[in-house]
């Protein structure tokens, strides 16, 4: 492998990492505050992709992506609120396995709802003109759209950092991650906060789905595919930590990209192996929160 090829492959890995980061950050945020592993997070991502596909078809590809991202984020956040209020809120005091199983029920329901609304055939979404094609990079060429995904991921990461570290909402979220009961004790409406956090996580999934739509076939099965990789990311990085999601996404994205080059059939196995090794050494992941007793 020449240096040029290496850089191109690295960039492709970073682009994948960007997408994985947006998805995993949402998953991780929800876990941090609510201590619920949302198996349906991938379903929300798939929903975002299909919503984006419909919006772009409706308004045309010239400006279609921007409204698509906004509509996907808002709609998916609304679905998230419905899930949190309708289902999860009733289960916080129950055993964690019931919460896990409930989100699993949501996975099944959303998969069929999407199939009912959009049908079983894959959709392709056109990117806006200025994001199509490739640019020269180190003597090779690299798709502009992949750079765009990296840029969005950086923006999402920065935005998330600002919200969590520089706003009063973020202060409440950080407090909820440490001790929600104490937070309720000082007068914060924790129940409403959980709804907001879940909506935020869902919106991130929706944005990721909308962003990925022009670079892949939008189809059923996206939910399972992404959730497994997002789990790998959050397990390696540690649940509940945004920094962990960032590092985990970078590792998995780059491993993915080079793995496919070296041994296409075993790329997935590499990721799971990496995951098993990290957990064997540090069961709560690199930056993870230990489980609340």
């Amino acid at each position: 492998m020449t240096l040029d090829e290496f850089v191109i492959q690295l960039m492709a890995g970073l682009s994948r990492a960007g997408l994985l980061f947006i998805v995993s950050a949402g998953l991780s945020l929800v876990f941090g505050a609510l201590r619920v592993i949302n198996l349906a997070h991938g379903s929300l991502y798939m929903l975002g992709a299909f919503v984006a596909a419909s919006v772009v078809t409706k308004v045309g590809s010239a400006i279609g992506l921007l409204p698509a991202v906004v509509v996907a984020a808002v709609l998916v956040a609304v679905v998230g609120v419905a899930i949190e209020i309708g289902i999860l809120r009733r289960l916080y005091r129950q055993e964690h396995l019931l919460q896990l199983l409930a989100t699993y029920g949501v996975v099944l329901v959303i998969a069929d709802v999407v199939r009912y609304i959009w049908g079983p055939t894959n959709r392709s979404v056109a990117a806006p003109e200025f994001l199509r094609g490739s640019i020269g990079l180190m003597g090779g060429s690299f798709p502009i759209y992949s750079l765009f995904i990296i840029a969005v991921a950086l923006a999402a990461g920065a935005g998330l950092w600002l919200v969590v570290n520089r706003t009063s909402l973020g202060r409440d979220i950080r407090a909820a991650i440490v001790d929600p009961e104490m937070l309720a004790g000082v007068g914060v409406n924790v129940s409403r906060l959980f709804t907001i956090v879940f909506a935020l996580g869902a919106a991130l999934a929706g944005i990721a789905g909308a962003i990925v739509a022009p670079s892949t076939a939008v189809g059923l099965g996206m939910d399972i595919e992404i959730i497994i990789e997002a789990f790998a990311v959050t397990i390696i990085g540690g649940l509940g930590s945004i920094t962990g999601a960032l590092i985990g996404a970078a590792l998995v994205g780059i491993a993915d990209s080079f793995g496919i080059l070296l041994a296409p059939r075993l790329a997935v196995a590499f990721i799971f192996l990496a995951m098993a090794i990290v957990l064997a050494i540090k069961p709560s992941g690199l930056f993870g929160l230990p489980e609340r007793a």
């Binding site: 592993i37 964690h96 497994i228 799971f272 957990l279 489980e291």
Partner: peptide, 23 residues
């Protein structure tokens, strides 16, 4: 392997290991 973790992490580890067998 999986029992190095507890509860939710354990559940996720079993998922990862079973996918490894599937692959």
């Amino acid at each position: 392997f999986a029992l190095r973790a507890v509860r939710l992490y354990f559940a996720l580890l079993t998922l990862a290991l079973s996918q490894l067998v599937y692959v």
